[in-house]
Design a protein around this nucleic acid. Structure first.
Lengths: 214, 214
DNA sequence: CTTCAAAATAAAGTCAATTCAGATTTTTTG
DNA sequence: CAAAAAATCTGAATTGACTTTATTTTGAAG
């Protein structure tokens, strides 16, 4: 199982990923050439393509790793005690946003997202989509938790709610990374406004919403 | 104002767009070279770059045109009579989806979206973002209309609601175009489930939701 | 009708992702 | 262990978007 070849292969994969990680973060995606990654990893440029189907695939592999961390954080968050539904959900989604910006720049996210759309079938395109699916599921878990605590109506489709909430944070985050001039505070306030609407709903509701941001 | 030169310029712009439109639709984005577009439009390749900043910019220009049509349809839709909020909103969003697939293939949408994220500052990247903003605003208008008709609570932030609803349809549409194997029916059903959640809200509500799709 | 300047043009050049035909290394076989 | 087979590596060649340049065209203005 663990022949020389397998170990070398795993090592080389790590080397390439580490090299890409370093260069992407230092120089950005556009300014990093596959040749430079190969040189730093001490392999031929062609070898990079034996492990990753494209430069974008390599980036998505890094993003997927980060996604795992975000989900781990999320799992702990869910286990905490929560007061009201709005704050609980907003807290989780804000945590995702904050985590996303720890290791990766906006430019890297732009390129990761672009690649995820155009190359969804590549190995790490699949990982990327799977990660999104799992995160949406995690938001759904939080909704279930809140339902059990009587903070969310039990007749709500938790899975659909999780997916909707996650799509919103994802979409806003995409707008955020696409426009460098958009401030993080603008992202936060839009997120708050929109999640507030979703939590409160549009139709007749016993507990009226409290406030609206201008 | 309308000298011969200006008209020629406008004409050339149209020629290039028309050529791009034809080739993109026939051969797809990836398989269409800028050289081929230039040849069909009977201009030099360099001229194409006098009018559009990149191949992706050219595609976004086409998409923006389509977006205008979609908004025109949407405006008429809003003016109609609406029964309940859920159906009214779902109808508008479904109309957007249907319209998007009339003229453009999934592959074109993938590339348009990818370009919109990575080149948001290019001339038609701005148009693309603006179009999204206007569509979200249009959904907001529908919400206002429904509020006036007493079908949506008046304390709801209509603008935020429109933005949230549009982000959802946009996000689901993105998932749809990214994965060729995803059926249109899957898109529709997810859209229905998620919009249902948003309209109904998560917290205590006078009118309980009626049903849930499995 | 001449001059001017904007715009177009073709051609040649740059650049970097991706591919590919052979070279090299590991594993398997006898 | 030696030879054959299989997997992997390699970097030079390909490809196509985009740029640059030197030259030409053509409205517009006097």
């Amino acid at each position: 199982m663990t022949g020389l070849r397998e170990r070398q292969k795993a090592g080389r994969r790590r080397d390439i990923l580490a090299a890409a990680s370093q260069l992407f973060r230092n120089d950005g995606f556009a300014d990093t050439s596959v040749e430079a990654i190969a040189a730093l990893a001490e392999v031929g440029t062609g070898t990079v393509y034996n492990y990753f189907s494209s430069k974008g695939d390599l980036l998505m592999a890094l993003v997927a790793l980060d996604g795992e961390q975000a989900r781990a954080k999320g799992q702990k968050y869910i286990a905490r005690d929560h007061d009201d539904a709005l704050n609980a959900i907003l807290g989780l989604l804000s945590m995702y946003v904050d985590h996303a910006l720890i290791h990766l720049t906006r430019e890297l996210w732009r390129n990761a997202m672009a690649t995820a759309v155009t190359q969804a079938d590549s190995p790490f395109g699949v990982s990327y989509a799977e990660n999104d699916r799992l995160m949406a599921g995690q938001v759904g878990e939080l909704v279930v938790t809140l339902q059990k605590a009587g903070k969310v109506r039990s007749d709500v489709d938790a899975e659909a709610a999780g997916a909707a909430l996650f799509i919103i944070v994802n979409g806003l985050f995409m707008q955020f990374v696409a426009q460098d001039k958009m401030a993080k505070s603008a992202l936060s306030s839009r997120l708050r406004d929109q999640i507030t609407v979703v939590v409160g709903g549009l139709t007749a509701n016993g507990a009226a919403q409290r406030k609206r941001a201008s």
